[in-house]
Nucleic acid binder design. Structure first.
Lengths: 193, 193
DNA sequence: AAATTACATTGATCTATGTCAACAAAATTA
DNA sequence: TAATTTTGTTGACATAGATCAATGTAATTT
């Protein structure tokens, strides 16, 4: 349960065994079956979540009823609604398990305590958020400049593993295109090569 | 030059006068005239920049020659290419002054020194990046779910000041639509009300 | 003040992608 | 294993927004 967790943390910061043991006490282990929700739109996101095992997605539903996926979270990633978590306001996002999951949850008070007692985590979370911001900026620029096919091929290149574990219509939703369009793009690409 | 800078910092963290004086020594003041560039695509972004006065934009040019604006930066905001700044790899972005500007620049080594000597800045930058991430996530979701008109009205509501200082075709570029489309949307809206 | 450049508008037409609908194949569940 | 649900494909058609082009006007520069 904690091996990957320890590995990911120590990739970015140095902490003592004592500090890590203290850290562990602040997290709540939780298992989720496929299709279960970790967060529902309208609820406050009480926890920031580390994925030890499995796969989840966060998504919104717009006023036309269409789903839009913000993020997939595989093992070793974090997921949550950062806005709702920090402000304690209702979330616009749903978070759903796409596979059976093993998770580590940390509440806001525990997070504050962790940052206070082990300041190295200040740095850890800054780096995580930095990387997330860089990725989100890229995705935004891609959304504005690329065709549907370019978006798909970029995803395939940058994220090959995704296709094996995520249903196609969710890939389409992540890319901001319809499943029909993605299906056609794939068959065109297959025909060409 | 430093009043707004001091104000913005102390809105988020508490630092002593000594610490602020030390901090000031790490920043390089710079003035830019309208249309001058702070960063050009292909160059490494050597500085993270606080805007004391004026207005800038960061943008990319895609392979079709179309500009896409990532950010406008008004007084009190930061601008730079976070990816290039952190990795020292060539930037994909241009940063251009839209008005005459007064800026405070900090290099990577100085930033590292600042974070080391005044750890409260670790928290300051984490919060900045957090807020930037939240805003970028929102913008991304909006890009995927909203019509051109919705994007425009949301911008007008959340950011009324923008329209007075930024030319319309750049607003269009920021929203990911053409200037012609924005012009038509505006005339439709004016006709309706 | 004249010349040039940047910015905005409007019309005609085009196109990438969406929508709707029918169908089939997998995968889950009963 | 039958029934249901989820997922993916394909065709016909619709449409939001892009593109191209012409024109006017405001703002800079000379």
């Amino acid at each position: 349960m904690y091996e990957l967790f320890y590995k990911k943390i120590t990739e970015l910061i140095t902490i003592s065994e004592t500090e890590f043991n203290f850290c562990k006490t602040l997290f709540l282990p939780k298992k989720l079956r496929k299709k279960q929700y970790l967060l529902q739109e309208g609820d406050v996101c009480k926890y920031n979540t580390f994925v030890s095992k499995g796969l989840l997605r966060s998504f919104t539903i717009d006023n036309r009823g269409t789903e839009h996926i913000l993020q997939f979270a595989f093992e070793g990633w974090w997921i949550g609604d950062i806005y709702s978590f920090l402000t304690e306001k209702p979330s616009l996002f749903n978070i759903e398990a796409l596979e059976e999951c093993e998770l580590l949850l940390i509440s806001k008070p525990s997070m504050d305590l962790l940052l206070e007692k082990v300041p190295a985590f200040e740095r850890y979370f800054r780096i995580l958020i930095q990387n997330n911001l860089i990725a989100t900026q890229r995705r935004l620029m891609g959304t504005l400049s690329e065709t549907a096919e370019e978006k798909y091929t970029n995803l395939v290149n940058n994220f090959p593993g995704c296709l094996q574990r995520v249903p196609q219509h969710m890939i389409a939703s992540y890319l901001g295109i319809t499943r029909e369009t993605l299906s056609r793009i794939r068959s065109q690409m297959a025909a060409r090569k």
